[in-house]
Design a protein around this nucleic acid. Structure first.
Lengths: 137, 137
DNA sequence: GTTGACCTTGGAGTTTACTCAAAGGTTTAT
DNA sequence: ATAAACCTTTGAGTAAACTCCAAGGTCAAC
């Protein structure tokens, strides 16, 4: 199958497929005589792995690590894989915590503001940001 | 006060201050005869506004909008400010939701994995990513 | 009068994950 | 045989928010 077909099956762009190949995520494929990339079901499966890993939050760099382990399973332990997963979960949790702090502060700001057509001269959001000691950060 | 002193007081770098000026966040300051930036308490207050807005999650671009309103309060309404705040809260909430989905999937993966020194050949995380129809995405 | 700490500018580099364009070769259908 | 639809490569551009560098000017202290 040529690149366009694989792209369509996976619902991504051909550019993305070439990008993944270039960055060591998707293994090189055979080429036709004219130089076209010819993909096998193996490549499609590899791509599905990549897309699933992306869907659970792994970055491309992290997916590279997972692929390295996956391709040489004999050389690696279950513990390593779990380690990567738990690490990722921790950074996700940290980000969630930060965003929740944002959410809380923004809610405080919004709730205190009338939000009406009044001039913004006395807007509580602006004055709070100007001199806030009371924002929960 | 020169740039180094203001930077120290705000606990940011001089590069950041120049960056903010260049990108229209911090108003231009006077210059000494030799071309040094000379900042007044007004500039420090403006920077505090910016840093507080950052601390509650606004991007620099959004802070620019807030500053425009702030500098011409007569021309704007409370509603506009609240609107920006609520919009921001929504994007923050959306991001939290996505990250929570990640967290959930990663937890499922991690919990199913023994994480031991066993070879990764049968690692449940890898096999799940290879052929997962059961990942909650 | 010279060291060292400060300041200036312009421009390049970083990270992430693509996306687009240009200029050209190939295949397929009519 | 020619037009449309595909493929190739290289290289540049995007967003966000800085960060670093080079090459040079300035100021205070000793």
């Amino acid at each position: 199958m040529k690149i366009g077909e694989l792209a369509k099956r996976l619902d991504i762009s051909t550019d993305t497929l070439r990008y993944y190949e270039k960055h060591g995520l998707l293994s090189f494929s055979e080429r036709s005589e004219s130089g076209y990339r010819i993909y096998s079901p193996k490549h499609e499966k590899q791509m599905q792995f990549i897309l699933r890993a992306k869907a659970v939050g792994f970055s491309l760099k992290e997916i590279q690590e997972l692929l390295e382990i996956k391709l040489e399973k004999q050389q690696h332990s279950c513990g390593e894989v779990k380690q990567l997963t738990l690490q990722k979960r921790q950074t996700v949790r940290d980000k969630i915590a930060e965003l929740k702090r944002f959410e809380k502060s923004l809610s405080l700001l919004a709730d205190a503001c009338c939000g009406g057509p009044e001039l913004a001269t006395g807007c509580s959001i602006l004055t709070t940001l100007e001199a806030a000691d009371d924002i929960v950060i």
